[in-house]
């Protein structure tokens, strides 16, 4: 079936499902993210410049007893005609499928399935809606993974411990050594911050610049250690986010930081800015810098167009410099 027809069918289904669904202890939502992407000096525009980043239908069911909720099931059916279902790009953002068993007073909750791993700000980024991506593709190489997690709250403190397979592409492999992640965080008024750690096998970070490109990728897995500090602070029209990460990949020390934020120009217009610096080998001269600036206009709850320009500069271990620019327009539909 043609790309346009497939997308039209998904959209039409969402239009029917979204507004008419009546729910008491379940909820159905949906989204469609379409983009036009143009690289600097690309030349002729072709069909590949138009991208359906993903279409999704989200189903959430809450299991309830006489004394309240005791579990939640979240299933996300997602599809993109432009990404392989088991590609890393697709699995950074899509395919949540998990079950949460609630413990007493929110203090110990058990989650299992495919979910966003609890490192840094990851749990708080709705990443598939962002065209300015944070640093996880460089620094961790994974975002969603299959496994188990224990997490909860003690007053203003929150904790999460997860053990996942480490593939990060929506599949499980018994050959992988597994990935252990923890985060301890605190909320103090509007300020939220935390410390995270990661040990185990995870996909190698992307060194070459090449965002959202279709590729037959073979993922390399490396043993990683990471220690991170994350922060988020909303202040007047600003929301500031930051991450500082240091670690080790096999025998190489790595590190970097991410600074990003949003500025509400008007109630409907949001400007976004990001900058990350990632050093894949602290002893070598190599680095990757990504910077971007974007604007979004919220027409209504359902339709948000955005434009972004991103620039990346990198230097490899041999001292070769490279830079890439990318202009993106995005149309995001939510139901």
């Amino acid at each position: 079936m043609e790309k346009a027809k497939r997308v039209a069918i998904i959209l039409a289904s969402l239009m029917l499902i979204g507004p008419t669904a009546y729910a008491r202890n379940y909820q159905i939502t949906g989204a469609l993210d379409s983009r036009f992407m143009l690289y600097d000096n690309q030349g002729k525009i072709n069909r590949d410049n138009f991208l359906i980043h993903g279409a999704e239908v989200n189903f959430k069911y809450i299991f309830q007893g006489e004394s309240g909720d005791w579990a939640t099931l979240v299933l996300q059916a997602s599809y993109s005609p432009d990404f392989d279902f088991f590609s890393r790009e697709f699995n950074y953002h899509y395919g949540d499928k998990y079950f949460v068993l609630k413990g007493p007073k929110g203090q110990i909750n058990l989650k299992f399935g495919k979910f966003v791993v609890p490192f840094g700000n990851l749990q708080y980024y709705v990443s598939h809606l962002l065209i300015l991506q944070p640093m996880f593709t460089r620094s961790l190489g994974t975002r969603e993974d299959i496994g188990v997690e224990v997490g909860g709250y003690f007053k203003d403190y929150e904790y999460d411990l997860s053990f996942t397979n480490g593939r990060g592409d929506g599949r499980i492999s018994l050959k992988n050594e597994g990935l252990f992640i923890f985060r301890i965080g605190r909320t103090n008024g509007d300020l939220r911050y935390g410390i995270s750690g990661l040990i185990g096998g995870a996909p190698e970070g992307e060194y070459m610049i090449g965002m959202m490109m279709r590729e037959e990728e073979k993922i390399n897995y490396v043993h990683k250690n990471r220690l991170g500090f994350d922060i988020q602070y909303p202040y007047r029209e600003f929301t500031l986010r930051g991450e500082l990460i240091v670690g080790r990949d096999e025998k190489v020390n790595v590190g970097g930081f991410y600074l990003g934020g949003d500025y509400e120009l008007t109630p409907k217009i949001l400007a976004s800015l990001k900058m990350n610096y990632w050093d894949p080998n602290l002893k070598a001269k190599d680095y990757i810098i990504d910077a971007g600036l974007g604007l979004g206009y919220r027409i209504n709850k359902y339709v948000t167009p955005r434009i972004v320009y991103e620039k990346s500069w990198s230097k490899d271990a041999e001292g070769m410099n490279k830079s890439t620019g990318l202009f993106t327009t995005q149309l995001n539909l939510n139901f």
Binding site: N25, S67, G68, K102, P104, K105, N109, Y153, K155, D156
Partner: peptide, 27 residues
């Protein structure tokens, strides 16, 4: 329309004697 961001934390701040909560969606 507002999402309750941290029910597992804030329910017990507002109701220290609570033991659980039940989510009720109303159209």
């Amino acid at each position: 329309v507002c999402v309750f961001r941290f029910p597992d934390r804030d329910v017990y701040k507002l109701y220290p004697k609570a033991t659980n909560y039940k989510s009720v969606l109303k159209k």
